[in-house]
């Protein structure tokens, strides 16, 4: 039987609410399901606004926070019960690219430092020559050259270059999955396509899957395969990115898609939109597990 690369079942994360906690618990993510097959690699978009739980999902997968309930299997292994060796493999094969391509660098080191560290820690290359080749190979993939870039300090690179370096660093580990949390939202619009194009290349030529976490539906529309649309911690719509965007069903999905501005003055927003009067203190509460119905092949919507 073919294994799945990543399988998530009924994943829930609740923050706070412990014995000594003063404030009520916050349900950040609930009843989340996900299936990424080993092959073919795909770009799975996790879309939603701030507070929808998308970054919590990234943190859970990357092991930054512990899940409250549910199951997370990587190649059939329970992520929470891995041996030390399995954990090390998992940490190498599941890589991350974050939103802010500046804060991940130590400004006092030249940028080659981020490569040196991973090569050393994960014993990727033996000897200077081999390490250098690995770096060049990774940099070539993102359209850069070692001689132009490695001796520089982070502030001497543009945002796009810094982010490409992060992708190259992730690629260096020969990952199976890259969790990309808003990888292009701090990059100039005209340079975004470059990063997205690298993602497509990694998917198609290197069989690397992506969990593309974003609030930007238009870039997801350009490159995404599957999409999960989160709203207040719950998946309200999932399936083919194109079908969801072209034929949204859930009230929130409709509002969201209608609010994405279109670069054409002849196609202005229709009507007005009202925002619920809610404050930051509004807690998300635990809901029953939603029932999904298939509105068209491969396009599921939460009922109710």
């Amino acid at each position: 039987m073919k294994q799945n690369l990543l399988e998530i079942r009924d994943l829930t994360k609740i923050y706070g609410g412990g014995l000594l906690s003063q404030s009520p618990p916050v349900v950040a993510l609930q009843h989340f399901d996900l299936l990424i097959p080993e092959e073919p690699a795909q770009i799975v978009t996790i879309a939603g606004e701030s507070g929808s739980g998308k970054t919590t999902l990234a943190n859970l997968i990357l092991g930054f926070v512990r899940l409250t309930s549910g199951l997370m299997l990587y190649r059939g292994m329970d992520v929470t019960r891995m041996t030390k060796a399995e954990t090390l493999t998992y940490r190498r094969e599941v890589q991350a690219v974050f939103q802010d391509p500046y804060s991940v660098y130590n400004p006092y080191y030249r940028v080659r430092h981020i490569f040196d560290v991973v090569i050393k820690n994960f014993r990727l290359g033996s000897g200077r020559r081999e390490s250098r080749d690995l770096m060049e190979d990774a940099l070539r993939l993102v359209g850069m050259k070692g001689e132009d870039i490695l001796h520089k300090y982070p502030h001497q690179l543009s945002g796009g270059q810094r982010q490409r370096m992060m992708v190259a660093r992730a690629y260096l580990m020969k990952p199976t999955l890259i969790v990309a949390d808003e990888p292009v939202s701090m990059i100039d619009a005209s340079l975004r396509a470059m990063i997205l194009d690298i993602m497509l290349k990694l998917r198609d030529e290197h069989n690397i899957s992506f969990l593309y976490i974003t609030h930007d539906l238009s870039t997801a529309y350009q490159i995404g395969d599957e999409m999960h649309l989160l709203y207040r911690g719950l998946t309200v719509e999932k399936g083919s990115t194109m079908r969801i965007i072209e034929n949204p069903q859930h009230a929130y999905a409709k509002d969201l898609i209608a609010s994405v501005p279109v670069p054409d003055p002849a196609k202005k927003w229709q009507g007005r939109i009202q925002m619920a009067d809610e404050n930051e203190a509004t807690r998300h509460t635990l809901s029953p597990r939603p029932v999904y119905w298939e509105v068209e092949p491969g396009h599921w919507v939460a009922e109710g």
Binding site: L191, L200, Y221, Q222
Partner: peptide
């Protein structure tokens, strides 16, 4: 024109227009 071309849109799924720093 380059800015317009590189703008993704929800109206159609079109191929990416890749621009790098040097081109800019």
């Amino acid at each position: 024109r380059m800015l317009m071309d590189s703008m993704p849109s929800l109206l159609e799924r079109k191929p990416l227009v890749v621009v790098d720093e040097a081109a800019k």
